[in-house]
Amino acid sequence: MEIGIGQIIAVTLFAVIAQYDGLNTGFGFAKPAVAGGIAGLLMGDMQTGLFVGGTLNLLSLGVGNFGGAVIPDYTSGAILGAAFAIMSGQGGEFGISLGIPVALLLTQLDILARFSNTFFQQKADKYANEGNIEMIERMNILGLIPWALSRAVPVAIGLYFGSDLVQMIVDNVPMWLMGGLKTAGGIIPALGIAILLKYLSIKKYVAYLFIGFVLAAYLNVPMLGISFVGLALAMLTFERRKETTVVFAGGGDNEDE
């Protein structure tokens, strides 16, 4: 699939918006699943984009850049991975296998963006001591430029050269390596689920885990259907806990009376 200039501009702008959202507004555009889905929508194949982004989202669970720590940029990885998967026609597994190294490589640009941003923030501190509100605002706006460029430049370059680059990769990568990449892409969701389960109270909610497993493995219920069942069980658990709290509170009042 050939990508047009309009699509390159749209996806690049979205990468910048997603980066800003992850730092400030927090609407969720920086989530790899959302980023991959929107990138896929802009590329004309939202399903593949959601598959790539959702899989990379599993890897990002429980990982945060607290205190300025640098983590893989799974958002940009999802965007470029989805785009490469759609342009190459090789499927979501191929996009995942490319999205992961992209996410790891962009950590270097993330460090550069943070380093550059400190220049503007130190200037903002200086103007704050002087009481210059206008220059404080200007420095904070200028501080967004390194962050924007750190994502816009690699995404635009990757998309612009992506069609030929991906085709070259597809034509020259040995079949055994391509098969290995696709196998690794299939294993990654299981790894992400395992990481997620590590942070959940499995012993306490093991019954729900069994229900989800039976729905997926034996009844072949689609993921959306399993999600609705999980939501319903969560609502029932919440209501049951609320009723128990009310009963305990009421019981205490009666005993006092």
Rank of each mutant, 00 (worst) to 15 (best):
A78K: 01
G143I: 04
A128F: 15
G180L: 11
L236V: 15
F14Y: 09
N65H: 10
Y20A: 11
V16I: 13
A69H: 04
G131H: 05
E93L: 15
L80Y: 01
L236H: 08
V155E: 00
P146G: 01
A207Y: 07
A15F: 04
Y20P: 06
S60A: 15
G162M: 05
L233I: 10
R240G: 09
Y160N: 07
G77S: 06
K242V: 09
A232K: 05
A190T: 11
V206H: 10
M1W: 04
P146S: 06
N132H: 10
A216I: 10
E257A: 14
V173F: 08
F161C: 03
E134M: 12
L233E: 01
G26I: 08
A82T: 05
A232I: 11
P72H: 05
L177R: 06
V16C: 03
I17Q: 01
I141Q: 11
V52G: 00
K198A: 14
K203A: 13
L42S: 00
F14S: 02
I169C: 04
L236R: 05
T12Y: 07
F213T: 11
Q167F: 06
A33L: 15
G180C: 09
P189D: 02
M135L: 13
Y205W: 10
F238V: 12
L142W: 09
F213P: 07
E93Y: 14
I111Q: 04
I17N: 06
K126N: 12
A69F: 02
G26C: 03
T12Q: 02
F213N: 07
T118R: 14
L106Q: 08
A15N: 05
I17A: 13
V11E: 01
A33R: 03
T183R: 12
I145P: 04
L191F: 12
L50C: 09
T75R: 00
D171H: 07
E239N: 13
V173C: 10
P72L: 04
I9E: 00
N117Y: 06
D110S: 11
N117P: 03
G95E: 03
I133C: 03
V170M: 08
E134I: 12
L142C: 07
I79D: 06
A249Q: 13
I111E: 06
A18W: 03
G192S: 00
G6M: 10
G49R: 01
N129P: 05
F210M: 14
P101R: 04
L181I: 09
I169L: 15
I188R: 07
L56M: 08
